[in-house]
């Protein structure tokens, strides 16, 4: 599982590097995201690292960093507090459909 995560984080990083046309220090990125996961895991969270697709789209569109910082975390934070209500209103087939979409996307990639 750790190996799969390691492969995934490096593949995501490579993808974003190609899209952004710039080289980064993968060792620095790995150290940083490693510390984040140690902290998150201590609170029962799951492994989290760079989102390839979202980061590539944001890079390609040249979005304003401050705006993105305001919008994305705000939605996540609000959703955190409303998670129970969201789960209550979202039918199981929708969650399973999203899961199927994620799996098919990985197969397609």
């Amino acid at each position: 599982m750790v190996l799969v995560n390691l492969i995934a984080v490096l593949l995501n990083m490579s993808g974003v590097e190609i899209a952004a046309r710039r080289d980064v220090s993968e060792n620095r990125e790995l150290r940083g995201i490693g510390l984040v996961n140690i902290v998150v895991g201590a609170f029962g969270g799951t492994a989290s690292f760079m989102q390839g697709g979202g980061t590539i789209i944001a890079t390609r569109l040249g979005v304003h960093r401050a705006g993105l910082v305001a919008g994305h975390p705000a939605v996540l934070l609000v959703a955190c507090f409303l998670a129970a209500q969201i789960v209550a209103v979202v039918p199981t087939f929708v969650a399973a459909g999203l899961l199927m979409f994620i799996g098919l996307s990985m197969l397609e990639d």
């Binding site: 995934a8 980064v24 990125e29 799951t46 492994a47 989290s48 760079m50 993105l68 910082v69 990985m106």
Partner: peptide, 15 residues
């Protein structure tokens, strides 16, 4: 800290 500007993080599905 990331050198990518901007970079987004998400709970991972691979594992």
């Amino acid at each position: 800290f990331s050198q990518f500007r901007p970079a987004l993080g998400i709970a991972q599905d691979t594992s």
